[in-house]
Amino acid sequence: MNTPAAVSAAQERARAAGFTMSSEESCGRFLGVLAGAVRPGGRILEIGTGSGAGLGWIVAGLGGRSDVEVHSVELDPAIHALAAAAEWPSWVRLHLGDVHDLYPVLGSFDLIFADAPGGKWTDLDRTIAALTPGGLLLVDDMRPERWGSADHERLTGEVATTLLTHPGLNAVELTWSTGLILCSRIG
Rank of each mutant, 00 (worst) to 15 (best):
D151A: 13
D101V: 04
P167T: 06
E158P: 10
D76W: 00
I112W: 03
L164S: 12
D110W: 07
E46L: 07
G52Q: 02
R146Q: 12
W176P: 00
L102A: 03
T127M: 10
R185S: 08
A37I: 13
S108E: 03
F19M: 01
L102E: 05
L124G: 12
P4Q: 02
D67M: 15
Q11Y: 01
G187P: 09
L124W: 11
G135Q: 02
F113H: 02
D101N: 06
A129C: 13
S26G: 10
D125M: 06
L137N: 04
W121V: 05
I79W: 00
V159E: 01
G54A: 12
G187A: 15
S51N: 02
G28L: 01
Y103D: 01
R43F: 04
M142C: 06
A53T: 15
W57N: 02
G54S: 12
G64M: 10
R15H: 06
S51F: 05
V139R: 11
C183W: 00
T122G: 08
G118V: 12
G135S: 10
T175C: 15
V172N: 03
F113N: 02
L75Q: 09
L34T: 13
E87C: 05
A160W: 06
T165S: 09
G148H: 08
H71E: 15
I44P: 04
G63T: 15
V105G: 04
R154S: 07
L55F: 14
